[in-house]
Design a protein around this nucleic acid. Structure first.
Lengths: 215, 215
DNA sequence: AACGTGTCAACTGTCGACAGTTGGCAGTTT
DNA sequence: AAACTGCCAACTGTCGACAGTTGACACGTT
């Protein structure tokens, strides 16, 4: 439809492009041709440009003047700096969750952990989806909208970086334990411990990502 | 010049608009008319639209479909949530600064503090510029580019919120003391204390902002 | 053969115009 | 007089086209 029925063309383009970038359909390092992608999406360059700029503001694309938009390739230093940001945000979220969580929040967290364990015990690889769900649930319990929004953006960039994670069983097991310990600290309202555990958890994930980056 | 000589028209528009929003030249709650502002800046609607979207992604404007861009008006809850984010980021920055700072960083921090005190003792009101300079210097010492970038964005939003701050002498005095204490902790490499002091400092600033919001 | 130079295609940056939607105003009805 | 309905101006969303810049290729020079 030409008129914006539910979402503007730019908004739709953002969703499609974001998906293509995050799934690696548009591989890191590649350029985004405006006219080509615009025709491919059946829209004009205007809305597509807005979509590109939006994704750039989220860190999913980097803009080079007169050259266009590129999918950023990650360096180890990038990963470290990004995880410093993520740690700052999620540790704060863990503290807030520990002091603000309701009983409903707690049940939700425990549910996600239980499902993750079932999945893991069934021999299935720990899907990244469940890890995201856990962190998202924790974020809801923290009830700090601005922190939540920033964490969402950072996690997106982390997804962009991970080429092939989730394939190291010991790491998965440790992550599950971390999650359980986090829930326990949050259940006890122990903000300090929640923060400490979260920091250790993210430190482990970061290390894992760095090693998998160096093959 | 029609061709992008140094910066694209959209980039220039971003700078001009940001200034106008932050200084209150475009008051909170008001709408941004695309054709009007475009003519006023001597550019077309295309680049201006990009500039508007960019500022919206920074939180300096809020977009309403088919209605346009508005300068957001702050509610107390907004201020609280925003300071939760700022606290998370700047406490982490303080910790990192304490463990990574060089001697040059330390001198710079002390210089800013000294200038602030001179300014204060001379009867001048503590200019927000010096407060920003202090936090910026601390951020440089932390050497965490992603955290620095996010803090910059958050501080912008804080500037947008403050209608008339910096006019309470006791608050200014306390802030100066906070800064000095922060520098001391950073000088000692005491990350935990740096974080604690930063948290107290921001808590005070937030409270001050909330009271000045309620007149 | 290596290097510097001129030319060119491809792409981005920008513009003006059209189409669709929104909120408000006038007119009418109860 | 209050509420509802239909119309209208203003503005945003979108499009196609033009202008300027960039990187690369081919050519000529040393």
């Amino acid at each position: 439809m030409t008129p914006p029925l539910h979402l503007s063309l730019a908004g739709q383009a953002v969703d499609v492009l974001r998906e293509q970038v995050l799934t690696g359909e548009i591989p890191p390092g590649s350029r985004v041709n405006e006219v080509e992608v615009a025709q491919q999406l059946g829209i004009s360059r205007g809305p597509l440009r807005e979509a590109i700029r939006h994704l750039a503001s989220e860190g999913l694309l980097t803009l080079v003047p007169h050259r266009g938009a590129f999918v950023p390739a990650a360096t180890p230093d990038d990963v470290k700096a990004l995880f410093e940001l993520r740690t700052a945000l999620e540790c704060a979220a863990a503290e807030l969750a520990a002091s603000r969580r309701t009983d409903v929040d707690l049940v939700r967290l425990q549910d996600v952990c239980a499902e993750s364990r079932r999945n893991y015990r069934a021999g299935q690889p720990f899907p990244y989806r469940l890890d995201l769900a856990f962190h998202q649930t924790l974020l809801d319990a923290a009830r700090s909208p601005y922190i939540a929004e920033q964490v969402r953006l950072v996690q997106q960039r982390v997804v962009l970086l991970r080429s092939a994670l989730d394939d190291d069983p010991p790491h998965q097991h440790a992550s599950l334990d971390d999650h359980d310990e986090l829930v326990k600290a949050i259940a006890d309202g122990n903000a300090a411990k929640a923060s400490t555990v979260m920091r250790r958890h993210l430190s482990r994930v970061c290390a894992q990502m760095l090693t998998s980056l160096n093959h």
